[in-house]
């Protein structure tokens, strides 16, 4: 496979990497850049474990060829401020943790776009992130708590 050179903004800083032409963003992040917070769950865009933000929108990084992020902004779970995630720890949003970074990235998108809740329920918005441990109540309730804190702040 031919190597191509890609420059983009990752978690606020410029990066430049040589990647294979068909390489997935997920693998570039995990295996070339050492950002292993982003997880592979299914490799075909069903489970959402590999969710990252591309120009502010949540995408499945297993479905994004890395060359497509040239010149764009990619944010991963490593960009989040840990104390801000405390309500998720309190609310039982994580158990085994394998889906969790993806869940958190989708949750952060909702937090930053509360207008979404005018047209969709939280359960609809989270339906792209499969979790096998929590039954979703811990996740949905924790996001509700975060939105509540933000709304009253």
């Amino acid at each position: 496979m031919t190597a191509i050179s890609i420059a983009f903004t990752l978690n606020g800083s410029p990066v430049s990497v040589d990647v294979d032409s068909a390489e997935r963003l997920l693998d570039t992040l995990r295996y070339r850049l050492g950002l292993t917070g982003t997880k592979e769950g299914c490799g075909e865009g069903e489970c959402g474990a590999c969710t990252v933000h591309l120009d502010g929108l949540p995408v499945d990084s297993c479905l994004v060829p890395t060359y497509q992020v040239r010149g764009r902004r990619v944010d991963t779970v490593e960009s989040l401020d840990p104390p801000a995630l405390e309500p998720f720890a309190r609310g039982g949003a994580t158990q085994c943790g394998a889906c969790t970074p993806g869940v958190v990235m989708t949750a952060w998108w909702i937090r930053d776009h509360p207008e979404l809740l005018g047209t969709h329920t939280l359960r609809e918005l989270m339906a792209g992130n499969l979790c096998r441990c929590t039954g979703y109540d811990g996740i949905v309730d924790s996001i509700g708590a975060v939105l509540g804190e933000r709304g009253s702040a």
């Binding site: 995990r30 943790g97 970074p101």
Partner: peptide, 22 residues
């Protein structure tokens, strides 16, 4: 008590087998 390793999982710092440097 809150989940002991909860924050490590939420921030993506928890290292599963495929995350370990090798």
């Amino acid at each position: 008590m809150h989940r002991r390793e909860g924050l490590a999982k939420l921030t993506g710092r928890e290292r599963y087998v495929d995350d370990l440097p090798l």
